[in-house]
Structure formats: structure tokens, C-alpha cells
């Protein structure tokens, strides 16, 4: 029988390396942006050169940010963690109500025996629900 393994173990590593490269390019483009700003301050460039220089740096930086966000989303494409399931135990004769962890064999209307509050054999499971699932 084939065993389940995490999705794309190899591709996760590749994506991690790509992210590192992207981060490096991002840093490089950020420095380029600052340098371009520095050039403007020192008036070392003509208008066309400054625009081209800053545009390239800006577009590169945006591209890197966009790709890192995409890669992060790829990493977080995950399973819904099995959430906690609770059984509501209620008494039909008094106001007694209690929440307990769902146990295998529990079902709605299942008799749960004696009520600790009124002493009657009127406890039953009135509902079973799950707490909101969290994404990993």
C-alpha cells in the first residue's frame, strides 16, 4: 500500500531556494531604489536616465514582493486541522446541560443515563458539533 507523504517535498525545497534568490534580488532592487534616490539628490543623472533607473528598480522590487507573497500562499496551501468535536448532554427533566468531548459511539438522542442534578434517567445527547476549524 502506498504511503501518503507531504505534497511535493522536493518542490517545497526548490520553492524555498527560489524564495531566497528572490529575497536577494528584492534586497538588491531596494538598494538600487535608494541609490537612485541618492543620484537624484546629487543630480548625477539626467531625467531619462533617472526615470529608467528608478522604474527598473521599482518594477523589480514589486515583482519580488508579488512572487514572495505567491510562494507563501503556496506553502500555506494546507489541510484543515481536524477540529475538536463536542457532544451536548442535556436532561429532559431539568435545566442540566453539559459539554463533553465527542467519544466514538456518541450520537444525537443517545441515552446518557442518570442526571447528576435531578437524579432521573433522562440524560441524552441533544447535539454534536465542531468548533470552527483552523487552517494550518
Amino acid at each position: 500500500m502506498a504511503q501518503g507523504k507531504p505534497p511535493g517535498g522536493g518542490s517545497v525545497t526548490v520553492r524555498f531556494v527560489l524564495s531566497l534568490i528572490l529575497a536577494f534580488i528584492g534586497l538588491f532592487s531596494l538598494l538600487a531604489l535608494l541609490t537612485g534616490y541618492d543620484f537624484i539628490q546629487q543630480r548625477r543623472l539626467d531625467d531619462a536616465g533617472t526615470s529608467l533607473y528608478l522604474s527598473l528598480a521599482f518594477v523589480t522590487f514589486l515583482f519580488v514582493v508579488f512572487n514572495i507573497v505567491r510562494t507563501r500562499r503556496g506553502f500555506s496551501l494546507t489541510t484543515v486541522v481536524p477540529s475538536k468535536v463536542l457532544s451536548v448532554v442535556q436532561c429532559t427533566q431539568c435545566s442540566f446541560k453539559q459539554l463533553k468531548n465527542f467519544a466514538l459511539g456518541d450520537y444525537v438522542t443517545k441515552a446518557e443515563g442518570k442526571c447528576t442534578q435531578c437524579g432521573n434517567q433522562t440524560l441524552f445527547v441533544s447535539g454534536i458539533f465542531t468548533e470552527a476549524g483552523k487552517k494550518r
Binding site: 538588491f28 538598494l31 538600487a32 535608494l34 541609490t35 537612485g36 543620484f39 548625477r44 536616465g49 533607473y53
Partner: peptide, 9 residues
């Protein structure tokens, strides 16, 4: 700055 880009003419 370690990276001083040449002026782009």
C-alpha cells in the same frame, strides 16, 4: 552604500 550603480546614460 556598498552598491553604487553607475549613472545610466
Amino acid at each position: 552604500f556598498p552598491l553604487q550603480f553607475p549613472g545610466l546614460d
